[in-house]
């Protein structure tokens, strides 16, 4: 067992984890943060995207111990006082989700995109979100939602 100390959504956490444990399992099973979703398991689909020190990271392919000392942000940390943040609101307003399984990962990835690029153009948006798969929407409304924010 290893000690793991990290900040999750702004709150300091100290846990014991097995060396083999994945970040996604610690978030979901130990911390009950089930908003982060598991799909492909192999860093292809982006459903498990969280921000580790601001960088979009596939929690399915990251060992929990690697997050030691880091700040981790998950979908649960975005809404403040019951109010959605502007990315969540834009997804909602534009119908950018259907089954919703890809959505937390997409929202986190868009969060990183908009932090790193103030005014991304169409090509930048498509390139940046290349690591997030959505099987329901055909991406049309996701792109519209992101564009509405720039």
């Amino acid at each position: 067992m290893h000690d793991l100390a990290f900040a999750v959504n702004g709150e300091q956490r100290s846990l014991q984890v097995e060396p083999r444990e994945l970040l996604i399992d610690v978030l979901r099973n130990q911390l009950g943060l089930t908003g982060t979703k598991r799909s492909c398991d192999v860093q292809v689909c982006g459903a498990c995207t969280v921000l580790v020190d601001g960088q979009p990271t596939s929690a399915c392919s990251t060992l929990a111990v690697e997050a030691d000392g880091c700040a981790v942000q998950t979908i649960e940390g975005l809404a403040k006082d019951g109010r959605m943040d502007r990315i969540q609101q834009a997804f909602l307003d534009h119908g950018a989700l259907q089954c919703g399984f890809c959505t937390p990962g997409f929202v986190m990835a868009v969060h990183a995109l908009l932090t790193q690029h103030e005014k991304p153009d169409d090509a930048t948006i498509r390139h940046y979100l290349h690591g997030n798969i959505c099987r329901c929407t055909g991406y049309v409304k996701i792109i519209e939602a992101v564009k509405s924010l720039v």
Binding site: T34, G35, T36, Q88, L92, G95, L97, G100
Partner: peptide, 28 residues
Amino acid sequence: MTQPAAQIRRDSAEKVTGEARFVTDIAL
């Protein structure tokens, strides 16, 4: 382009915040 409230889906609001429960999230 904001949609009239009637078009907003309640399921979407739960999904976009990560609250929506799928089978994989159930622990008995």
